[in-house]
Amino acid sequence: MALKFKLQKKDSGMKKKKQALKKAQESFLQDLFRAFRKNKLAVLGGVIVILFLIMAIFAPFIVPHDPYAVEIDLQFYEPSSKYLIGTDMFGRDILSRIIYGSRISLIIGLIPTLISMIVGTVLGMIAGYYGGKIDYFIMRLADIVLAFPSLLLSMVVMYTLGASLLNIFIALSVVGWARTARVVRSQTLSLKEKEFVEGARAIGVSKQVILLRHIFPNCVPSLLVLFTLGIPEAIMSEASLSFLGVGAQPPTPSWGLMVYRGKEFIFSAPWVAITPGIAILIIVLAFNFLGDGLRDAMDPYMKQ
């Protein structure tokens, strides 16, 4: 009888538990969302970023023309109803090329940033938690990387390895990890002094598990912000490299490359260079607004 009663109690407990779980998760996200929503620019940024993602993913279905189709007859067609923002020197539809270019920008924005975040986080946590010689070595390496003008460093990498998309990934990752490592290291340093880390040690939790279970999740908010702010930087770098001729190679519809190729005709056919430039501007701004908004929204939560 008593046992049965206990079982029943447990059952209803489980139900309540599930509800509680849902509620706990909701309230965290709701908090974040509520704070985020108040920031109008951040919301605008978020909307643009979502549109950008849709554009990149569904590019083949929304382009009005083939972005690679060369039509010498249609050279420098002015913006019209058929070619909304005109054509370039090979008569290719610029709108279609910009839409396709978003794919390049997305890949360039995501992959090298992700690689440098992972490398930077791992190195930063190791440096911060273990300290001593490892810390010294990693941080001096990061200092050296940060001491170089980043564009110059990536140009050096591109020149040595040759211009290709893969090499842009490598170049941007080489440059990007150092800043993440620094941020993560300083967070790790302060987190490892916290009593909850001491508590975990007192329980006998191993160093690796402490890093994974206690330090890393507490770095996530700043990593998220670094990530959203890293993406536009990577997009910018790719555009700069392409503009300088060491990035994407023609006929790839990269926005930076389009600006570069169009600059000769800036007076005769300004739309060729200016429109991809505006695209870069918008997407970089949108990501920055989003990143700032996320950071601000996350801050009060962290303070609690």
Partner: peptide, 13 residues
């Protein structure tokens, strides 16, 4: 520990 705010990992249930 003393500080009930610092002694529990804020990201764990």
């Amino acid at each position: 520990f003393q500080d009930p705010y610092a002694s529990l990992n804020p990201r764990m249930k």
